[in-house]
Amino acid sequence: MSNETDIGKDSILSCRKLVRFLGKDENRTHVLRGVDFDAHAGKTHAIVGPSGCGKSSLLYLLGMLDRPDSGEIYIRGTPMARANDNERTSARNEHLGFVFQFHVLLPELTAAENVMMPMRKRDQLGESAMRKRAIELLDAVGLGDKVNRLATHLSGGEQQRVAIARALANEPPVLLADEPTGNLDARNSNIAFDLLSKLSHERSIAVVMVTHNPELASRCDRVLRMLDGEFLK
């Protein structure tokens, strides 16, 4: 682990002394106890640990989807923990890609339209360029022949691959995945993981993955074990 003075040297996404409580009154739980973390480009990082140890909480804090009670989060050296909602929203759009366990796609849209959605929000490419890129990404995840299929007409594994393609739509330097294979069978789990691993190395993306699957975790470049809101040394 690097200390606070190392921020920005070789990590894209970092956090220092991150503290988070969840719940209220007697249900208040100390979920994260001053966690430090660095994500490096082109590497796959697995965060493992028992249920409730705080790994998903850390992931959502790193993804600007939640706010820490104390500590700091840096994206390319820029502190973001106390940024306003618009700055955090913009950071999510430009720097972060998300893959969730329940691969939530917009059911009214086709696979290509789902992948184009983050690009539309960023508004940097024209319609045809966005579509071309969406088709390329879907091709990369093995769904080149299903670009025009409605999300509801895809299998669970296919939907997860569309979600991976969507997470990569704006070429984010960091991809955060919360149990990306948790809802898939063994075959689809391997396909999804291989895909994330390949994209990480080929496109120099820092992949941070929370998983319960020890086999998949062991195939990552770094494995961080968590217990009671802290990383084990």
């Binding site: 989807l65 909602d85 929203t89 999510r92 939530v104 917009l106 059911p107 959605m117």
Partner: peptide, 16 residues
């Protein structure tokens, strides 16, 4: 709700 949360996760603001 879930779709809205997903939209927010990849960059849609509250105003959007």
């Amino acid at each position: 709700t879930k779709e809205i949360a997903i939209l927010r996760s990849f960059g849609f603001s509250k105003a959007d």
